[in-house]
Design a protein around this nucleic acid. Structure first.
Lengths: 338, 338
DNA sequence: TCCTCCCATTAGACCGATTTAATTATACAC
DNA sequence: GTGTATAATTAAATCGGTCTAATGGGAGGA
């Protein structure tokens, strides 16, 4: 199992190590016939390029770190896909960690990636993350881009959905359809998207002079189970809400399933709107109205911003918000007349 | 942004590079007070261990490659999670690629990982993969474990679900409940789990002397959309099937949504069984009967087998099948009486 | 023939940690 | 004081590419 290295190719081809190195990378310094011969020998010997050695010398690993907070969420899965696609195209590799909402795991992941010498990091910070927690990245001078979640007061590169506007839009529409008792359901509290969605929600209610129900939001894990787990609580409120803005489509799915189980028909007796526009949302019964913000856009924008930094882009931090568009579907029904 | 290295710590602590190296790794060769002093200096200077350099010297990167075929499938997401957990615990890193059912991408990923010098690889091969395609891994002597899918005739380490038995079990149950016109829905054809599930399906039908409908299976993408897209086709068959075994829970979800849209109630008018037992399956309306095979078990078994190989385990290839257990829920209803 | 210029090739230092073999310091016995 | 064993430390080679500066060889001009 001995690995073939440059010096062995050099020997076999009757040239020097330097020539082999240059030839294999297609340097114009090497004459065409020589390069061709070297390439053939390398192929014949089954040579595998050693990126570790090259990385040591170049101080560049061509590796990107991706730290997610919750990749069981299909939105993140879709996002990662587009990140991966871009990275693959450039012949780079992806170091991946799911911090699973644990600060400790996240910090360990960052440390690991620094030790591996990643060229840059894409990070969706867990909820308790402070500016100090990321100080190690700043000190190490490793470029990073936050995605989906930002850290209030910490001015960094960031890409995420237009959460305030999205939620605002949805609630305005609900009000326009006659709803007055509206509630916000699900999400990890004290993450920026949760906070911003709640903010847009509240703003729309207040602007219309509608009193907020009490409580006016309930939190949950971002999953079908999370949404389903809050149904009883909501139905026990008096007066009972008639509409819900859900933190995500998955939460909305769970909530709708829970409603149905209790004989309440979403899209007729209860209006539901989600966030994300997953591919299956339009297939649901009823089709789920939702705030569409393509995960692929978030992903490719984030990785592009990072790659620009790696190429030496020096400007001030950029904050990019991807537009959230309300997709009207049957689950967003008018208030029933009493 | 200059990086601190061992020699600088050595200088500051008044010892040699070798001492620093040993001290930081807690070697018993170094006297306690010295080690303590060195550690303090390293801390003060903000030293970050350079794994690239260590990897070059040690010929070991402490990195594992994970190549998935379709990680938008929630089953894989859950599986990856348990893999990650195990790897993290051991201070190793994960190089991740989603081949997205493309052989070309898969081969590129394998090449990349070899160049990065991963210690081992977990691979879910795309459908066209042949033994020759993985020859490069064998030649390079890099241990690998296949998961979820195997390659017929290629005797390697493998961990996956008990697909034949699972499908067999489900179909027997359907027959017991009075169903005769049963169809298999969804999945990527010519992957081993598809083939094995279809095989178990067929075996159960034949053993009971029931004629297979024509066609007796339809394929689809493994997703909600995939399942939904096959409903019309199935309902147009004559005689119309009364039960379906679906390739996965996601396919089953899509299929059930499609049935409902056409006014057919799964769990009453049509029996449906899935594969995987996703956390939301029990929450569905109706709750989805399914073949449970915990993704975390598959994942942790696969990574453990790989780690054993890395520790020098030399035995013959091991094939491990994780039991699939039929979870009876409302979607698996008896045949209605005509 | 000699000199210059240019192109192709190469020697050798380098990246930063690891480890072996050697050296120095310390302890203890005789 | 000498010798031996043991503990602590270190010099230097090493991992495998990369790249700069130097070398060699051939063409062309005078």
């Amino acid at each position: 199992m001995k690995k073939v290295k440059l010096s062995e190719i050099a020997l076999a081809a009757g040239v020097s190590r330097a020539t082999v190195s240059l030839a294999l990378r297609g340097s114009p310094l090497i004459a065409k016939p020589t390069a061709e011969r070297v390439r053939a020998v390398a192929e014949r010997l089954g040579y595998v390029y050693n990126r570790t050695a090259a990385a040591l010398r170049n101080r560049k690993t061509h590796t990107i770190g991706l730290v997610e907070a919750n990749f069981k969420n299909p939105f993140f899965a879709a996002m990662s896909e587009s990140v991966e696609r871009e990275i693959e195209q450039r012949g780079k590799a992806l170091l991946f960690v799911d911090s699973a909402e644990s600060l400790q795991r996240q910090q360990k992941a960052i440390q690991l990636m620094l030790e591996h010498g990643v060229d840059g990091i894409l990070l969706c910070p867990v909820r308790q993350t402070t500016q100090e927690d990321l100080g190690i990245l700043v000190k190490a001078g490793v470029p990073f881009v936050l995605f989906s979640r930002y850290i209030p007061g910490f001015n960094t590169d960031y890409v995420g959905a237009a959460n305030v506007e999205g939620a605002y839009q949805a609630v305005r529409k609900m009000i326009e359809l006659g709803h007055r008792r509206i509630i916000f359901i699900g999400g990890e509290p004290y993450t920026s998207p949760w906070f911003d969605r709640v903010k847009g929600f509240k703003r729309a209610m207040e602007e219309s002079g509608i009193e907020l129900p009490s409580p006016w939001y309930v939190c949950s894990e971002v999953s079908v189970a999370g949404g389903a787990s809050r149904v009883d609580e909501v139905l026990q409120m008096r007066p009972v809400p008639t509409a819900a803005l859900c933190y995500s489509d998955t939460v909305a799915f769970g909530f709708m399933l829970g409603l149905e189980r209790r004989g309440i028909h979403p899209g007729r007796d209860f209006a539901v709107v989600g966030f994300d526009d997953l591919p299956e949302s339009r297939l649901w019964r009823p089709p789920l109205a939702t705030l569409a913000c393509p995960p692929s856009k978030v992903g490719s924008m984030a990785i592009r911003m990072l790659l620009e930094r790696l190429d030496g882009e020096e400007g001030p931090p950029r904050r990019v918000e991807i537009q959230s568009e309300l997709v009207q579907r049957d689950s967003l029904c008018p208030m029933w007349n009493t």
